[in-house]
């Protein structure tokens, strides 16, 4: 898919000192207080460069979803900070945060979160509608994206009539519509059979490869994690290994 976005060129110049898209510095997140206090995340630091493909791996309850939510600015950390393109997220106004999430991030969820009664097209245009684009422009863009994902003929169909694989492709189209620099995928293949899951995986990796989109995939599927450039393993709210820094991995052992 053609794009005039300067971000897409960053893959080419990755080798010297790749600029960090997302940076987490000693993030902690806890719920409740006193004896019922639960630490979902303790002192986690991660640096994700532009164009990286990162898998956040761990068992259920390891804090991997919490980390993703914090990185995607959907939640606020109890301690620590998240930097986006070097800017501290705390310094951003609510409006700027909304704008940032709208422009820079795309989301793919295990549960799809499509509006069942709306058409595929309406579902895909949602982020563009929120961005305030005109009807014509967002329709053209959505049809473009749907075409590139092989869903052009489903544009007018109601989301409820789609198969699981088609639904997840629609979700990817929706994530992609706003030309984001980062796509967050939370168990993107968790609800799909392995054949359909493989197609969806291929699609995500193709986006990463061809458009230089940064991928942050949360999964407990080792095969999916293995296809990523880098694996961050969480256990009990702490990073136990990060393939980008082998030293840590040894400490964990």
């Amino acid at each position: 898919m053609p794009t005039d976005d300067p971000r897409s060129t960053s893959t080419a110049s990755r080798t010297p000192a790749p600029p960090a898209v997302l940076e987490a510095i000693s993030l902690s997140k806890h719920y409740g207080s006193g004896p019922s206090r639960f630490d979902a995340l303790s002192d986690v630091s991660v640096r994700i460069a532009a164009g990286e493909c990162v898998a956040i791996v761990g068992k259920s309850g390891s804090g991997k979803s919490t980390l993703m939510h914090l990185l995607a600015l959907l939640d606020e950390p109890s301690q620590g900070e998240v930097r986006i393109h070097g800017t501290d997220a705390r310094s951003l106004s609510g409006r700027a945060l909304n704008r940032l999430r709208n422009r820079e991030f795309g989301f793919v969820f295990q549960q799809f979160f499509l509006n069942a009664q709306q058409s595929v097209l309406d579902n895909v245009t949602l982020p563009l509608t929120i961005a305030g684009q005109r009807r014509r422009a967002r329709r053209d863009r959505a049809l473009d994206v749907l075409g590139s994902l092989g869903l052009a003929d489903k544009a007018a169909a109601k989301a409820v009539t789609l198969s699981g694989g088609q639904k997840q492709r629609t979700v990817i189209a929706r994530a992609l519509a706003g030309s984001p620099s980062v796509i967050f995928a939370d168990e993107p293949t968790g609800n799909l059979d392995s054949a359909t899951g493989a197609i969806v995986e291929d699609m995500l990796f193709a986006l990463h490869r061809d458009q230089g989109i940064t991928l942050v995939i949360v999964t407990h599927d080792d095969d999916l994690a293995a296809r990523c450039d880098r694996q961050i393993v969480l256990r009990d709210g702490r990073i136990v290994s990060d393939s980008a820094s082998p030293a840590l991995e040894e400490v964990a052992r």
């Binding site: 995607a72 959907l74 609510g94 409006r95 945060l97 909304n98 704008r99 940032l100 999430r101 709208n102 422009r103 989301f107 549960q111 979160f113 509006n115 949602l126 982020p127 929120i130 961005a131």
Partner: peptide
């Protein structure tokens, strides 16, 4: 609920 969450995640403001 989900839809509202999704729209907010996509940057829709509380005012909207």
């Amino acid at each position: 609920t989900r839809e509202i969450g999704l729209m907010k995640a996509m940057g829709m403001s509380s005012g909207r």
